[in-house]
Amino acid sequence: MYRPALKPTGYSFFTYRSRHKILISLAIFVSAVISLNFLASALKSFALINSLNGNLPKHLDRSNGGVIIAVLSTDDEAGMLRREYGRRWWRRYQNSLSIPEPGANTSTTVPFNWIFIVDTSKQTHWEGDVLYLNTPSGYKHLGEKMRRLFIYLSQKFTSMEFLIKTDDDVVLCLNRLAKAVSEVPKEKRRRIYGGTLWNAELPQDPKHKFYDPLFVQDTRGTVIKTHPYGVGAAYMVGWDLVRFIGRNAEELKVYEIEDLMVGTWLYGLDRYWADYDGDFNCGCFKYAEKFLGKANEAKGIHDKSIWGERSVWWHDCKTRFQLDGCHAVFKDSAC
């Protein structure tokens, strides 16, 4: 027998109007969550950029095609000592880098600025040639320090050639480095990623100094040797790549091992590798020791690689005696 449908006695959840209202409310809620996340991200970026907003000192040359040498340092007595030696070293180049052009008897001269980078909990500011960068301190935070440095430099210097990153305990031979740059076609120099090619054994022990938990996690513990990257003692990054990192820094993962981190950021990009050698153990000091009349041969040191044309940097030159020795060796050289 036919029975007419019963009229609803209340407002059903399954009516068209109720579903419509619920869907609209849900859409509004989702939009609000997305907007709040976007706002939080924007505020975070603004706070970071604002904390890095130290104006450049007038003495810095912002000419097109220039080079920046960023020297990581510390704000203690040892750092102050090495910065003073560093200034003495950089002055010998008279603020210009001469790049020989292959196949011609000519060279391209570009101006360079050296700046020392010291972390601070205060707002970013300058004191002479020292940039006090608002960033966490300590070895474990070097990755974040470099990320903030890329942001700052990409905003403050608009049209440069490339960045050289080094440390205050490194003696860097700019003329030999210029030779490595000369092998890169001119049109590729703003996309240089140069340094000492290194495939590091990746430590798996959390107690190891170079253990990087986030990198191990991201590679799911499968990487025994890393991809090639430029050793942190002295590597170059072309300005197009510097600006790419600066623009995308908020989206890039920060690792503890800063040179591996930069190499990871650049690994999939169109970049041009410039390769050169270096010495991890203050090799110039070893020869300086002999040069200064010390008994070096008794230690069995006969390696002459320091005089090789591609030896560009010497690392771990920390003490006054070591620095005096290196500066003495290169006093009259074309380094």
Rank of each mutant, 00 (worst) to 15 (best):
E187C: 09
E251W: 13
R189E: 02
G230L: 00
D240L: 00
A249P: 06
A200P: 03
A249S: 13
V216T: 15
F244R: 03
D169K: 11
V237Y: 00
T222K: 15
L252P: 09
W239V: 08
F162P: 02
V170N: 09
E251K: 15
R189T: 05
F244A: 05
L252F: 10
I224W: 02
G195W: 01
T158V: 13
D212V: 04
L177N: 14
Q155S: 14
L149R: 03
L174G: 07
G238M: 00
Q217V: 03
S182H: 07
N199A: 14
W198I: 01
Y235Q: 10
A234Q: 09
I151E: 02
D218P: 09
W198V: 07
P203I: 11
L174F: 13
N199C: 08
L163A: 10
R189F: 01
K188F: 02
K165G: 05
H227G: 06
I164W: 00
G230T: 09
T166G: 11
R190G: 04
T219P: 09
K186C: 01
K188Q: 15
Y193G: 09
G221D: 08
R191F: 01
V184M: 03
D205A: 06
G246S: 11
W239M: 08
I224M: 12
M146T: 10
E144C: 03
R243Y: 00
A233E: 02
G232E: 09
V216A: 04
T226I: 04
L214K: 15
R148C: 12
C173G: 09
C173T: 05
G195M: 08
D168S: 14
F210D: 10
K209C: 05
K188P: 02
L214E: 15
P203M: 10
K253Q: 14
S154W: 01
A200M: 14
E187P: 06
R243L: 05
V223N: 01
R243P: 05
M160R: 10
P185V: 11
V231D: 04
A180I: 05
I151K: 02
D167H: 12
K225T: 10
R147G: 02
L172G: 07
W239Y: 14
M146S: 04
G195Q: 06
V181W: 00
A180C: 09
E250V: 11
G195C: 12
A234M: 06
N199D: 12
E144K: 12
L172C: 14
K188L: 13
F215N: 12
Y211G: 03
Q217F: 12
N175A: 04
K156G: 01
V237A: 01
V216G: 03
I245Q: 05
K179H: 03
L241I: 07
F210I: 06
D168V: 08
M236H: 01
F210W: 15
F162D: 10
W239A: 15
K145Q: 13
K209G: 06
R191E: 11
P185F: 00
K225E: 08
Y193F: 14
S154R: 02
F244D: 09
K253V: 10
F215L: 14
V181S: 13
L241S: 01
A249V: 07
Y211E: 07
H208S: 15
T158R: 08
Y211V: 04
A233C: 12
F162R: 04
K179T: 02
D240A: 06
V184P: 02
R247G: 06
K253F: 04
P185Y: 00
S182K: 13
F215E: 13
N175W: 12
G246P: 05
D168Y: 08
R148A: 14
I151N: 03
E144T: 11
T222A: 12
